[in-house]
Design a protein around this nucleic acid. Structure first.
Lengths: 342, 342
DNA sequence: CGCATCATTCAAAGCGCTTTGGAAAATAGC
DNA sequence: GCTATTTTCCAAAGCGCTTTGAATGATGCG
């Protein structure tokens, strides 16, 4: 069932049917009703491709996922983020176009999207300091929202981010307040912007209290369980070991917990652990009292906000940069306690 | 730069340019070269929307992710699966259209896809026994591949699945061979086909050895860390507790491990654990010797196979059902050992 | 009543591509 | 040398929609 058939069936011109369905004012209310009823009755649905061709808009949002040749970890927060964003798109009659491309082809993908308007906008994932994609998208004039921020990029653009710096500063202070002096940081790869900011927050907090950071207690690596485990095992084996860990993700922290157990220590009393919790749906931080003390911020929420912001930008046809900076909640769980007396 | 401009620029008709670019035989080899060179030089890329309108094909594959109103867990294997499938699409010049819709709207989404040919085929995720989507897609004539299978559906269709039954039968036998008699199963929700098959395999193995299954040792629930933890805690507190656990996912098993630790037991010697390992990129099963003994099968591999199978079906224009049944690897790790003498 | 105004409707062009049905040029066959 | 093919190219129609510009009928008002 297409427009032509529907209009023939109604004995009305395509123009009028189209306008009736798209809520144009210049159509009689009675005919509009009739048209809409017929559309539903005959299960008519406008072909988005034809619509896109005619309007130049695609009613689709692009997500470009670069596959790195180097480190092949698929980001575990991806599923929750996409699900949340996708739901917003669906509610707003937009499609989600996912492109999984080799990182070297990422730029070309954006250019293609812009050239033939396959999408009305894109979400940029995993920004790196001074990220080249931002300049590119600005040049292309393709609306975009960055999930996170790119430091060193002094130009303005739209983003949704959590206050990573402040978050880790607070976490560090929390541990310092508990008397911990030997605090380790197990972080993500530092070419990721969030990891860099978290480290800054950590260092600032230590510096402000006159505690010097030890390089051997600051790990930056892939965010896997195993990395958490290996890092913690290594640090706990040192003659003077940390009494507390700040860990950038739940998954890494699970490895840290394993290491603590194997070292014969008890998490919470012997060794404190504080994590950043993305509130992944399949990794709830315990039921009732959280398993881990955490700086918490739902990545699903971020996904919704990103999606909505982008849709707003597109709808308003106004790319003036918008920002949302989310503060994390510092929620106390069972993994932290006062520093043990040496 | 569009076809018209390009052809004007070359002084050749649109027809010929189009045919040259699409490798039709009836075009002079010299002009074809010239056209292709010009296309590259001017960075011409055919508008997929216009192409789709003209051909009726979309060069896109749909993935419909139903958001349940009841249990809001986003499947953690999703990210790896999608990344792997998406990469195959990209290599084959296809797009991936993701629709995240309320489960009640899922059917409508398929109908829409079919009605206006927004996609050339779809992947069906998380089949349930006797899944209605399969009938629907057959009726719609939309090519599809199911990741998994729908038991009780005696009609034939294309799928890629792992041998869940056999896998869990082997795992159970492995534990029985080690002398375990009190074996618990911590499984996913049983309306998911894979969970049902795993349970069958488990029960078969026990039955064949004359060991009777205890209902209170068979859990079926969301596959989260916390569920694994709570389930194991509860079972370990019983007067006669299981000496071994078979766990349907790594994430649940992490919770089980936590429970074992808190119960003052040691995994591997006191309590054995064997898991199914989807080989998620962010959850490697230890480095070197696996942390968990596991039936292993890479979900990324499954994603590639599904994607490729669907593309093959579409390219061959032949929907004769195809099947791939993957056997899992039983890899021995540190989480299993002989049953303790009672 | 006659003309301007407004509310509705429509025919047709256009979005960027493919494809049909010829036509022109080149080659072959005798 | 002339017709029959084959090769190579093209104009135009069509995919399903929106949108422009114009037409129609109804209404208002002096």
């Amino acid at each position: 069932m297409n427009l032509k058939e529907l209009s023939a069936l109604l004995g009305i011109s395509q123009t009028t049917v189209s306008r009736a369905l798209n809520d144009f004012p210049e159509v009689n209310e009675a005919t509009r009703k009739r048209v809409k009823a017929a559309a539903i009755a005959h299960n008519y649905r406008a072909n988005p491709r034809a619509k896109g061709l005619a309007t130049g808009r695609s009613m689709a949002i692009g997500h470009v996922i670069p596959i790195s040749t180097k480190h092949e970890i698929v980001n575990p927060i991806f599923a929750d983020f996409i699900a949340a964003a996708g739901e917003v798109y669906s509610r707003n009659a937009h499609d989600m176009l996912l492109s999984v491309v080799a990182d070297v082809d990422e730029e070309r993908t954006y250019r293609d999207h812009a050239a033939n308007a396959s999408v009305d906008g894109v979400i940029v994932h995993g920004p790196k300091p001074n990220d080249s994609r931002i300049k590119l998208l600005k040049n292309l004039g393709l609306p975009f929202v960055v999930h996170g921020r790119a430091s060193d990029d002094d130009t303005d653009y739209s983003w949704v981010d959590i206050n990573n710096r402040r978050s880790f500063e607070r976490a560090t202070n929390f541990l310092l307040d508990l008397g911990h002096q030997r605090i380790a940081l197990i972080n993500g790869l530092e070419f990721m912007d969030f990891a860099k900011r978290r480290k800054d927050g950590f260092l600032d907090a230590l510096g402000n209290r006159g505690v010097s950071a030890r390089p051997e207690w600051m790990i930056s690596n892939e965010m896997t369980e195993n990395v958490g485990y290996q890092s913690a095992i290594a640090m706990l084996a040192q003659p003077t070991a940390p009494t507390a860990f700040i860990v950038s993700s739940m998954i890494m922290a699970i490895g840290v917990r394993r290491a603590i157990g194997e070292a014969g220590k008890k998490m919470g009393s012997d060794i404190s652990v504080i994590i950043h919790d993305d509130a992944l749906s399949y990794l709830p931080n315990g039921a009732g009292i959280p398993m881990f003390t955490a700086t918490k911020s739902s990545v699903q929420h971020a996904g919704q906000l990103c999606a909505q912001m982008l849709l707003d930008i597109i709808a308003a046809n106004d790319t003036t940069p918008r920002h949302i900076l989310l503060e994390t909640e510092l929620t106390v769980g069972e993994s932290t306690g006062p520093a043990p007396k040496c």
